[in-house]
Design a protein around this nucleic acid. Structure first.
Length: 422
RNA sequence: GUGGGUGUGGCCUAAUGGUUAAGGCACCUGGUUGUGGCCCAGGAGAUUGUGGGUUCGAAUCCCACCACUCACCCCA
């Protein structure tokens, strides 16, 4: 038999890691709900064309990172590489434009990108996603930014940096791209090979290059902020005024660009230190043209996606404590056939009454069962032996105090209900 | 897609070309009738990532592949 392994770039989230995940998910959901976001679950796979049109055919995500396959009916499907396209598709498909606007939706789940794994990067990873559809108010941009920021703050993150930029709209961006290209044309011999390629394929990303060589050229490049149209400039100014109003710190980063075509106006990322080269714990922005590009009514939108794996990495790097998950506080040990029958009956009875129970299995010595009770970390061990059962009693041992007492079988449920939560 | 590092029981590690691959953690069983943590004894658990090659002899040297890992690219 071959020995199976998980596919490259995937991971098993083992029981010992679940407290981190549960903590992140529950806080994220609580914050979303309290800001009026409602949950939406969209399919894990969609028609391939949805992503191609939504994200952009020339993007890396679509060009080389999608898990695309043909189903038995010959249809081309793709495992979602992100949430936004699917959520906007659902908005259009279910006519959500007739609901009170804006529509605020959150999602949580796995997404897939065929990429080379490294620290903080996986082929299957999980995102917490927020979208506000149906308003172009900069206050909506603010709301997703603040919510995600509060998520990190609530988790106890330190040393975050909030990067903000505006990449304009279809009216002003092309003009800026021409200015940028004109500038770079003069400096092509001073930049790296990658940048000479970017000059052709994705000029905005020239600003994002990390090569030492290119830094002086980037520093002197014309910033997009000087080339925004009136509407984009106003929007950006208003958003920044709101951030200042709330006293939310951010770094204006005119080099911040996004790899997905649908973004307009606002773009932002939050960076964390200490988790490797993949420092962005979330990315988001405005996408006013997306709904229309997907065949729906013109609908402005703004959203953010946070990578949960990276959040967990930060929590571990910063040694953030998380509460352990609830577990039974009672262990049922037994001796002999009668004891075993009584344990089976009692486990059922206690659990129905809301008392969490570990039940011993198999025929083992009491010592071994007590050892197990200790390792399970329970507060109480119940011993069902011949002696007690003959008198309709059970021995209840307090594992912390180290003392024990006898309790009538009929009173056990009430006894534990009075003392234990789970 | 490109480059670097690493692969020895579930986990951590030893064995520097020479018997049957050693130890710790964890796991299981005992240490006088039915009692956990500490201690003691014992047990189970490995075709040394896979396949080739060199050699009388390979965990160890060489090649290929695979996986993991870090970085580029890109992104969460």
């Amino acid at each position: 038999m071959p020995r199976f392994q998980r596919p490259t770039g995937t991971m098993d989230i083992l029981p010992e890691d679940q407290p981190y995940w549960e903590y992140v998910r529950s806080l994220a959901v609580r914050l979303a709900r309290q800001a009026g976001f409602e949950r939406i679950d969209v399919p894990i796979f969609e028609t391939t064309d949805l992503f191609a049109r939504g994200i952009g055919t020339a993007t890396d995500v679509v060009e080389k990172e999608m898990y695309t396959f043909e189903d038995k009916g010959g249809e081309s499907l793709t495992l979602r590489p992100e949430f936004t396209a699917g959520v906007v598709r659902a908005y259009i498909e279910h006519g959500m434009h007739v609901r009170p606007q804006p529509v605020k939706l959150y999602s949580l789940g796995p997404v897939f990108r065929y990429d080379r794994p490294q620290a903080g990067r996986y082929r299957q990873f999980h995102q917490f996603n927020l979208e506000i559809l149906g308003t172009q108010d900069p206050a909506a941009d603010l709301e997703v930014m603040v919510l995600i920021w509060d998520l990190y703050a609530g988790l106890g993150f330190r040393d975050l940096s909030f990067q903000l930029n505006s990449t304009g709209c279809p009216r002003c961006r092309p003009g800026y791209v021409e200015v940028l290209r004109a500038y770079y044309r003069q400096h092509l011999d001073e930049v790296c090979d990658d940048c000479r390629r970017r000059f052709q394929t994705s000029p905005l990303r020239l600003l994002d290059c990390k090569a030492e060589l290119c830094q002086p050229v980037i520093a002197a490049a014309p910033p997009i902020g000087d080339h925004l149209c009136g509407e984009c400039a106003d929007h950006f100014a208003e958003l920044r005024a709101y951030l200042d109003l709330l006293g939310r710190p951010y770094t204006l980063n005119h080099r911040l660009v996004r790899g997905l075509d649908y973004y307009t106006k606002t773009v932002f990322e939050v960076w964390a230190a200490g988790i490797g080269a993949q420092a962005a714990v979330c990315g988001g922005g405005r996408y006013d043209g997306l709904a229309e590009a997907l065949g729906g009514p013109p609908t402005p939108g703004v959203g953010v996606a946070a990578g949960i794996e990276r959040i967990v990495l930060v929590m571990k790097a910063q040694e953030i404590e998380v509460p352990s998950l609830p577990a039974p506080s009672v262990f049922l040990a037994y001796l002999g056939r009668k004891g075993r029958r009584e344990a089976v009956r009692l486990a059922d009875c206690l659990r129905r009454a809301g008392v969490g129970v570990w039940q011993a299995f198999d025929e083992r010595g009491l010592k071994s069962q007590m050892r197990e009770a200790n390792r399970r970390g329970v507060r109480y061990a119940v011993i069902l032996g011949e002696d007690e059962l003959a008198r309709e009693m059970a021995t209840v041992r307090d594992m912390e105090a180290g003392d024990q007492t006898e309790v009538p079988l009929g009173e056990l449920t009430a006894w534990f209900q009075a003392r234990t939560i789970l």
